[in-house]
Design a protein around this nucleic acid. Structure first.
Lengths: 219, 219, 219, 219
DNA sequence: AATGAATGAGGCTTCATTCAT
DNA sequence: CATGAATGAAGCCTCATTCAT
């Protein structure tokens, strides 16, 4: 009867009532993790915060980790949607490199700023081997791949290897924004940070040709 | 389950044997955390691995968190030393911007590659409020400040705000390298990653003037 | 870190104090199982009865089942010793078949009557797959094998298959005595039961020749 | 965790559908207990296996124990019927002692071999104080009493006390067969076991006179 | 009646920490 | 000082049972 650490929801809620319960649990879990951290975000605390019994918690989630997984999946779905939207946009309207990069960075920033404390728990504190790792890697991969043609279209300067550049871009942007938001270095405002990061990425992509963002104000 | 807030070692090891014991405990803690993670890196397990009794463990460390702090302090001392060395070097010999950036990025990479699993625990999994946070912020601050004059010396292109740029540089480099090492995205070799990251940072610092790193292979 | 249901004691008590603790736990477990049954013989209840903390319980026993195993092993060691003693005795002094059978049955009866309620739990209520099963089978096997030569020596009537008879004897005697003691059918005194059981077994072994036990009191 | 003491079905199933539901639950319970044991044979699992909701389960059975009782009662009814049949048979046709004993033993063997795993749960693992105990004792009593006249009719050798002998016979036969089936000692085939058990019982009943079953092949 | 969502007492077990030797 | 036995709060999770729909 050993049930090897299941991470998928236990039971699909069919009635309206149970859908609400699941929703309440997820919502409560987010708030509890954000305020107490992963270790102190106990299943009982989450259930209490959700206003349901601990039994209900375990009707829908086989264990505590499954909650983290569910929360991450939510976040990832959102992230993916954001990127899709950006891709669609750049397909429809003419955008400069800087426009694309700005959208990208801002989307990341907005995402993480929604709930920094929670994301700290989800992305750093919660134990890895949740299988979620692969999912995240796949998303990055997909985004990077999607970027390649965009880059080809927009960037005249030739990059050594567009795919590598796309990967780098995704990694650097994600890591930097996340790190900035989750650990908020004092003395650096989000807008300033974002603006400079955009400059950096654009400088990298556009190369040693003049850009539309004047670096210096000197006449 | 009491967790007092003292985070400093309980007593200075004055005798040689004590020093060895402390050393053994720290070493064991590092290995245990790396292989088991923070939560499963129990104090008893660490003591056993170190070959000392649990009583001795608490002789030298007031609680489990103190071990994490001690381990982080070690790491930070090392990091600081590395940056000092880089500063000294650039004071003594003539270095291009690229040289400095390369040294910086490579030093970060080497540091994190020493023991990714352990650093994952120290920097991400271990609960924050260890006060250590400030220390780290201070180090970043110091490094950023130290970079400003270097940048003034080397960089002709004028940056909007050298201090902001220094901060950005430190944040982006640290976050990217750490993220790369701790989560190793498949399909991106460390050397490639480092090289491109260097290019990006240099492009940012040097601005839209030609650099010594040819971006394109075009004849 | 899954520890697949260990059943062996966790830690060998080295100090005198801990030996006493282990002893107290086993003793308490016996009493608790006897009075509450297996399901209600909770680890906390056992620890409390033993006057030790639940933590101490788990220092020495990895789980509740391990206690059952330990208790059974004790019982089996005793049983084995009893049989050895009987074998030795029959080697040293001249015994009739009836003497041997009587000793055998009485030994069984005494054993089970020590603590019927506990043995009910150990032999019936506690879930089987404790690996203990094999041990018990081996003991029965050993006893049966040891009986064969004795039977050859004592029994003139030829049995169809002495080994089969030995097995039957062990099974029937054990099952009957255990069943009698653990479920005490009303209206049958232990002495009467034992006496008749002895008669039955002797009749089987000696066969259709006159025995020294007059079957009837017929005038 | 409340366990009321009612052990009778909550309501008589008057409609056909109800009867089928009860039947399905009992059948499912038997299979679940047999494959999972008593403790892991949860009421939810049983309901699921029966294809009914847990609500329906409690519609027909006040609690989990009631299921065990119902299952045992079924078994006992069957056993009783078997004995009745044997009694009837021996009333109608001329049977030797051996015939009767063989019928008796074989009937027991057949009964237990139907579903050893389930009977293990019902007779050993399930907690006693089910009141069922008395019922079983009464059945044994009845069977023993019924045997007395049979024995008087068939057995010339005089037994010390026919009633005691009848009891012994019932106890020994039941205990031995059950024990054999539920714990299947390796290296003893059911037929061999049954045959020898019959021999033993006949030897006991018939006493030191020659029987029709030659024990030895001695010339 | 039937359904299945909800409940929560309570069992098992861990592990940071203390304390007697 | 070292040892390791002991502690117990607290976390995870199950499952018999109830109750709203």
């Amino acid at each position: 009867m050993k049930r090897p650490t299941e991470l998928v929801p236990r039971k699909r809620p069919v009635q309206q009532r149970s859908k609400e319960t699941v929703e309440a649990i997820l919502e409560a879990a987010g708030r509890v993790f954000a305020s107490h951290g992963f270790a102190a975000g106990t299943s009982n605390r989450i259930a209490a915060r959700a206003g349901v019994s601990i039994g209900s918690f375990y009707q829908y989630f086989p264990n505590k980790d499954a909650i983290v997984v569910a929360l991450m999946e939510r976040h990832m779905a959102e992230t993916t949607a954001t990127f899709e939207a950006l891709k669609d946009l750049s397909d429809r309207v003419v955008m400069t490199v800087e426009d694309v990069v700005r959208h990208f960075v801002m989307a990341l920033l907005n995402t993480y700023q929604q709930d920094p404390a929670l994301f700290r728990v989800l992305f750093e504190e919660a134990p890895r081997p949740l299988g979620i790792h692969n999912t995240r890697a796949k998303i990055h991969e997909a985004v990077a791949n999607a970027l390649v043609p965009q880059m080809g279209r927009l960037i005249t300067a030739q990059l050594r290897d567009p795919l590598v550049s796309a990967h780098l871009l995704v990694e650097v942007a994600t890591a930097s924004v996340r790190h900035f938001v989750l650990h908020t270095p004092a003395g650096l405002k989000a807008e300033t940070f974002a603006e400079e990061l955009i400059v950096m990425i654009v400088a990298y992509l556009v190369g040693p040709e003049p850009t539309m963002t004047p670096r210096s104000a000197n006449p």
